[in-house]
């Protein structure tokens, strides 16, 4: 997808943004290389905690925090970590930050901690974070890694929100807990159940595929 958009001659605001290298690190994670919709990474938390918009946002922000911190630390240590043990070191760095986040969320809101459950700890095994550490932070300086982490994290949050919003809207008739539909609305219970997660993500992917095909034809 990256080549597809780059090949075309672009003009306008987005192009100026994209042509400056530092903002590009930030922008690419949001859309062109979106971790969920384009790279299909980090599926487990994406599907598991996107049953309400609130959970999705909280999970996305927690992941963004860990991604930012680990990207920066990995990038600053990139010349000291021996190549053979790099993956193990990355995992340890990530695990430490996840432990911090876990206690942080527990301190902020017990209810949120309960509804996210073990999935906060499972941020450790989110492939997006390890993927960025290996593919980006270990090769680039701290500033660029920071921007990359921020972009990817927000892109992840955005994708999670897309899923969580749709699932809560259809499954519960509300968004962030505010009811949107009249009482006569029949909830689609299936959407908040596990199967609904698969279907919603499939629908979003279909939507983006169709968009891509249309653009390729034009």
């Amino acid at each position: 997808m990256g080549n597809l958009t780059k090949d075309k001659a672009e003009t306008g605001f987005m192009a100026t943004l994209r042509n400056s290298p530092s903002t590009d690190e930030f922008i690419k994670g949001l859309w062109r290389e979106n971790p969920v919709f384009v790279q299909v990474l980090g599926m487990c938390p994406t599907l598991a905690v996107s049953n309400t918009a609130m959970n999705a946002m909280a999970m996305g922000l927690a992941t963004t925090f860990v991604l930012l911190m680990s990207n920066m630390l990995v990038s600053s240590l990139r010349n000291f970590i021996p190549k053979q043990v790099r993956i193990a070191s990355y995992i340890l760095i990530i695990a430490s930050f996840v432990t911090v986040t876990d206690y942080l969320i527990q301190a902020i809101s017990i209810d949120l901690h309960k509804s996210l459950g073990a999935f906060i700890s499972l941020i450790v095994v989110n492939c997006v974070i390890l993927g960025r550490a290996e593919a980006f932070a270990s090769k680039n300086n701290m500033g660029r890694s920071f921007l990359d982490g921020l972009g990817m994290g927000l892109g992840f949050t955005f994708a999670l929100f897309c899923l969580g919003g749709v699932r809560e809207l259809l499954g519960n008739g509300s968004i962030f807990g505010f009811a949107l539909f009249p009482d006569s609305f029949q909830e689609w219970i299936i959407m908040i159940l596990p199967a609904g997660g698969f279907f919603t993500l499939a629908a979003w992917l279909l939507f983006f595929n169709a968009l891509k095909e249309k653009r390729a034809k034009a």
């Binding site: 299936i190 159940l193 199967a195 279907f199 993500l201 499939a202 279909l206």
Partner: peptide
């Protein structure tokens, strides 16, 4: 159809499997 190929199709099947496991 070419639009459905790839991850989207796999996810659809996974959804149906998940339904049956309920």
């Amino acid at each position: 159809p070419s639009v459905v190929k790839g991850a989207a199709l796999t996810l659809l099947i996974a959804g149906i499997l998940s339904l049956s496991f309920m």
